[in-house]
């Protein structure tokens, strides 16, 4: 059996840094494009990753976006040290938000993040501890078999 080709990347994300929000997702996009993944898959991953990145920027103190690209799937972990999510079910509802007013004034935190992530991924799991932080695991299945 031959060893599977797998690529892992890890980018730190700074909480509260709105000026750079989205930069990490753009870097991830470039990696996925260079690996030759199909455009529609890249789009889904990047939209979800960007929402996850924004969640870290809006709510957490610090965190990271990790991705593992395998021939059959792409996995993304958005990990943060932050307040955690008190009610995951509520957070999943469209329009529900705990973003403070100054963040919403910037046009962020409309309460569409997690629902949009779910919509764009094939599998999503949230692990959260109040007062400690949140890990979001996302999986995206390749639409076509890669060679």
């Amino acid at each position: 059996m031959t060893e599977q080709a797998v690529l892992e990347v890890n980018f730190p994300v700074k909480g509260g840094d709105f000026a750079q929000a989205g930069d990490v997702s753009t870097k991830l996009k470039r990696v996925l494009q260079q690996l030759g993944l199909e455009t529609s898959l890249v789009r889904r991953i990047v939209i979800a990753a960007c929402e996850a990145e924004l969640n870290i920027v809006i709510h957490a103190y610090s965190g990271s976006l990790k991705a593992r690209v395998s021939p059959d799937k792409v996995e993304v972990w958005a990990e943060d040290e932050g307040p955690g999510i008190a009610d995951v079910e509520l957070a999943m509802q469209e329009g529900y938000t705990t973003a403070p007013d100054h963040v919403r004034a910037l046009g962020f935190g409309a309460g569409l993040g997690l629902p949009n992530i779910k919509k764009n991924s094939d599998f999503m799991e949230i692990e959260t501890t109040l007062g400690k932080g949140t890990t979001l695991y996302l999986r995206f299945d390749h639409e076509q078999q890669v060679r």
Binding site: A5, R30, Q33, Q34, L35, G36, P71, V146, R147
Partner: peptide, 8 residues
């Protein structure tokens, strides 16, 4: 952008 047609 793609580096190679072959994923590995």
């Amino acid at each position: 952008l793609s580096l190679d047609d072959d994923f590995s």
